[in-house]
Computed example of a mutant assay.
Amino acid sequence: MSFLIHLLASAVLAWSVGAGHLGGGLLAFALLYLLARLLGVAVARLRRYARSLEHGISFCLWFIAQVFLATYHVATLVLARRVDVEPAILAYPVTRREVDKVTLLGTLLTLTPGTLALDYDPEQGLLYIHALDARRREDMTDILIELERRLLAWLDASKAEGVTP
């Protein structure tokens, strides 16, 4: 909750310093972020906040790129003269078994074109995913591992030291 209050306060302050102009607001927001980052050297709470913001922006940009790549892949499959797909249901072992984290992971997978989170088995820690085209299972599991790693790094950025995106 304090993260949202800080983010909202920073955005309002950045907007007012930027006199309502988008460029000035972004510049003021960047300066406020750099100030928080510099003060974060002395204040651990600001350091965690800045690191969480960095991980969040990094994750969002990476995820948007993955959605565009998946959209392009599904579009090429659909628009091909001969549709050649191998749909499959994959059982993915999640790293962390907390229901909220698995729910968020499943929701993000469902947002990605060509994949759908079907079910979660909490006893075995398996998330069942339907993939439209699973001809390259290694690529599919690599993307799942990377998605989970980046998501957990963002969620844990404000808690632990030394987590890398």
Rank of each mutant, 00 (worst) to 15 (best):
Thr107His: 07
Asp142Pro: 00
Leu32Ala: 04
Thr95Ala: 14
Ala28His: 05
Ala50Trp: 01
Val94Gly: 02
Arg136Lys: 12
Pro122Met: 07
Pro113Leu: 09
Thr115Ala: 04
Ser10Ile: 10
Leu126Arg: 13
Leu118His: 01
Phe59Asn: 01
Leu46Ile: 03
Leu39Ala: 11
Leu147Pro: 04
Tyr92Ser: 07
Ala19Lys: 12
Val163Pro: 02
Ala117Asn: 11
Leu109Cys: 13
Ala160Pro: 00
Glu98Arg: 03
Thr95Val: 12
Ile5Arg: 14
Arg51Gln: 09
Pro122Asp: 07
Leu127His: 05
Ser52Thr: 05
Leu116Met: 14
Ala14Lys: 09
His6Glu: 10
Trp15Gly: 06
Gly18Cys: 09
Asp142Asn: 10
Leu46Cys: 08
Leu116Cys: 12
Leu53Ser: 08
Thr141Gly: 00
Ala11Val: 13
Gly125Met: 08
His130Met: 07
Ser10Val: 09
Leu22His: 01
Arg51Glu: 07
Leu7Tyr: 07
Ser158Val: 01
Ala131Trp: 13
Val17Asp: 02
Arg137Ser: 06
Gly24Cys: 12
Ser158Trp: 02
Ala19His: 14
Ile64Cys: 09
Arg82Gly: 06
Ala80Pro: 00
Ala44Pro: 09
Trp62Arg: 03
Val12Gln: 08
Trp15Phe: 15
Gly106Glu: 04
Leu105Pro: 02
Arg37Phe: 08
Leu104Pro: 07
Ala117Asp: 11
Leu32Arg: 02
His73Met: 03
Trp15Val: 13
Gly125Lys: 15
Gly114Pro: 08
Leu108Thr: 06
Glu148Tyr: 04
Leu155Arg: 13
Arg150Gly: 01
Leu147Lys: 06
Ala88Ile: 10
Ala160Asn: 11
Ile145Pro: 01
Pro113Val: 06
Leu116Gln: 05
Ala30Phe: 13
Gly56Gln: 01
Arg48Asn: 10
Arg97Asp: 00
Val83His: 12
Ala131His: 10
Asp139Gly: 11
His6Trp: 15
Ala157Ile: 01
Val85Pro: 05
Leu31Gly: 12
Ala65Phe: 07
Leu151Arg: 09
Gly20Tyr: 13
Leu13Asn: 02
Leu13Thr: 12
Gly56Glu: 00
Ser16Val: 14
Leu108Gly: 02
Ala65Gly: 10
Leu39His: 04
Arg81Ser: 15
Leu105Thr: 01
Ile89Lys: 07
His21Leu: 11
Ser10Phe: 08
Lys159Thr: 08
Val99Gly: 00
Asp119Tyr: 06
